[in-house]
Design a protein around this nucleic acid. Structure first.
Lengths: 114, 114
DNA sequence: CGTATATGCAACCCAAGGGTTGCATATACG
DNA sequence: CGTATATGCAACCCTTGGGTTGCATATACG
């Protein structure tokens, strides 16, 4: 089942990425940025149940995890998704489920061997 | 790119799952359970840099996220992975990256239309 | 039955994280 | 130039979460 699974990174490296995705507000930001493309901070704050400052903090958290990137254009800073890290997160989950598949395979082989 | 993507769940539902995976200790537990199969708490604690109680807490956190399940056998409780949730987490990431792909597609179409 | 092993429960500690308010700063625009 | 808009910075609050220690409980085993 594993998709093109390039990096053979240590699985535990994924923790910060998952942690970044593990917040509803941030996940919603990621989703919006994916769907609507690059947006300014105020745009992202519109309709959000929290303050603009909170949004800023979350964006910085996403940036720290390498999931998003913001650049200043004039008086507003535009944020966009960093797709590479998203792919990498998928790779991590694939690694884990591959391990699980392999374990199932070994178990089945062991049982049938009896 | 999207794999067999069954559930059309709200993306934000994924947050608790990612949050559960967003801790190095827990991610290591998940990995070990995938590779080595069902294990007892003390087995999982052996070699870990933290206390058995800490491991127990993390296992309960994984259980709360639906990622693992423990059943008591005699005097020890054996923990195993709940693969369904793992698949679901993959589905979430697929949803997000699909959205991103779609956005790219639209952008490209828009540019070429000019 | 007595002891060692495997967990569970509970209280407690402390740092991190999400959220807010208030104010400063910088850029667009008439 | 003056004003409105878009952000940045910093201090502060409070809850959550990871981790620990101490003790109770239950089961395997000689």
């Amino acid at each position: 089942m594993s998709r093109a699974n390039s990096a053979a990174t240590k699985v535990t490296d994924a923790a910060p990425v998952f942690a970044a995705l593990g917040d509803e507000t941030r996940l919603r930001l990621v989703s919006r940025l994916c769907v609507e493309g690059p947006l300014s901070i105020t745009s992202l704050s519109d309709g959000a149940p929290v303050t603009r400052q909170a949004i800023t903090k979350h964006l910085n958290a996403l940036a720290a995890a390498g999931l998003a990137r913001g650049t200043r254009h004039g008086r507003e800073s535009i944020w966009e998704i960093e797709p590479a890290r998203l792919r990498k997160a998928q790779g991590y989950l694939d690694q884990i489920s591959d391990q699980w598949d392999a374990a199932i395979g070994r178990l089945k082989a062991f049982v049938e061997e009896e």
